[in-house]
Design a protein around this nucleic acid. Structure first.
Length: 406
RNA sequence: GUGAGUGUAGCUCAGUUGGUUAGAGCACUUGAUUGUGGUCCAAGAGGUCGUGGGUUCAAUUCCCAUCACUCACC
């Protein structure tokens, strides 16, 4: 769409699909692969902006759904970068996913666990709070009960006002338990919505890039078809969406990588577990985002090279060991130990808990950002597979779950 | 010293007109968390109901004594 935005592959893996590169945006370069931090409402939960810069985050992903009512304010302020204080590259999600999540009765829509595939943890379509039509989605805001509508055009207008460097097309995601027929229906609707997003985007103009979002469930023909069709449209890049079973992720990403235009960037939506990111990078995903590093940090889970530790567990009381030996995050450099951080986690004092949230979030986000930095280096140096195998073996060996199996 | 009140889970307390395995919140333990409305969600463990007697088929509950604490008054 714009000369200000383009992807420059630097080094390609032996499989011809994975790569390291640079995404050039109006607000700076994104060296890939990388993890984009999630700042849904324009800031990362529990994390001051200076901490975010300090841990070397390269891009922030916000959400068109959550910011829809502030879009004018953001526009007036000069766009998301100026408004949020994060002056680097920014991404917005369309809001489609969030509306569908509400539509599931606030239940689980995205899961990588087979046992969630049944109807038990999913709200039947007819009972959902969001009603999907050809025009778009009618939904009820669960907080104030207001009835609203969002379709491709509405999402584009909101995202244009927010003004992130990269926008996502309005898509309809499906759940693991959805049938082949429903997946096809949703995918075809997503294609029609994609065309409308592109039209509205052209009408609105500007220097923002727009990614088309792929659905298709775990069905090879649907995934390849949507990759071909959306890949043939005038998008600047692609978002890879949907609910993935862990065991299917690699296959699905390989199928779409074989069909999509190589020289356009791809964002894997919503994943950040080390094994998932390695699989993503192997099959051509350039950017990632996920709420897990910060959410899990708040819930006590701390990432380490030897697997995660849960600071809620009593065994960490008074243990004066570093969170993760050799970690370069701000929290570890300040000398916080598992025992000392646990005291804040367990504290009933509001300020101490907030302090814990920040310290733990800094650590986990830095852990994932650093992992993608090292992944990039390994690709550039032609040592991706070795780095991957070594990292995953160490990370998962001390835990019951093994690489490739959950 | 006198009068009154309170003793039930680690903590704060419900409850029982006497009746199966005595509850809640918090804390604790374990699990969960993947395109975030923040202290979330799920499960679990934990009690000789202050102590000793009495009445009763049956007492945490009623009665007596006793201990501890609290308050008030001398």
């Amino acid at each position: 769409m714009s000369d200000a935005f383009y992807f420059e592959p630097e080094k390609i893996l032996r499989n011809g699909l994975g790569r390291a590169g640079v995404i050039h945006t109006p607000h700076g370069d994104i060296k890939t692969p990388t993890f984009a931090v999630v700042g849904t409402r324009g800031f990362v939960r529990s994390m001051p902006m200076e901490k975010l810069r300090e841990l070397n985050a390269q891009a922030m992903l916000s959400n068109g759904y959550h910011l829809r009512r502030q879009a004018d304010e953001i526009s007036t302020a000069g766009g998301l970068a100026a408004w949020s204080g994060w002056d680097g590259p920014t991404i917005t999600d369309s809001g489609g996913f969030q509306i569908m999540s509400l539509g599931s009765g606030l239940g689980k829509v995205v899961s990588m666990n087979k046992k969630d595939a049944g109807t038990g943890r999913q709200t039947p379509h007819e009972k959902r709070l969001a009603k999907i039509t050809e025009d778009g989605v009618y939904f009820t805001d669960p907080w104030d009960g207001q009835e609203e509508f969002m379709g491709p055009e509405e999402s584009m207008r909101v995202q244009h006002k927010i003004g992130a460097d990269i926008m996502m097309a309005f898509d309809e995601l499906t759940s693991i338990g959805d049938s082949y027929e429903y997946n096809m229906e949703a995918m075809e609707r997503t294609h029609r919505w994609a065309e409308r997003c592109l039209m509205e985007h052209k009408k609105l103009g500007g220097a923002q890039a727009l990614y088309g979002v792929l659905q298709g469930g775990h069905y090879e023909d649907l995934r390849r078809e949507t990759a071909k069709i959306l890949g043939g449209m005038d998008f600047d890049g692609f978002g890879l969406g949907g609910a993935f079973l862990k065991e299917d992720l690699g296959k699905i990403l390989e199928w779409v990588a074989e069909e999509l235009p190589f020289a356009k960037p791809r964002h894997l939506l919503g994943l950040s577990r080390p094994d998932d990111i390695f699989v993503g990078a192997e099959f051509g995903c350039d950017t990632f985002d996920c709420v897990a590093p910060t959410r899990e940090a708040r819930h006590g889970r701390i990432y380490t090279l030897d697997g995660d530790v849960n600071l809620r567990k009593g065994i960490w009381a008074n243990v004066e060991e570093p969170l993760d030996e050799g970690c370069d995050c701000g929290t570890c450099r300040e000398g916080w130990t598992r025992g000392k951080l646990r005291v804040l986690l367990k504290s009933q004092d509001r300020d101490e808990k907030e302090r814990y949230f920040e310290l733990a979030s800094v650590h986990n986000v830095r852990f994932i950002v650093r992992l993608t930095e090292q992944m990039r280096e390994s690709i550039l140096e032609g040592e991706f597979e070795g780095f991957r195998d070594g990292f995953l073996k160490r990370y998962y060996s001390s835990i019951a779950w093994q690489y490739g199996r959950m």
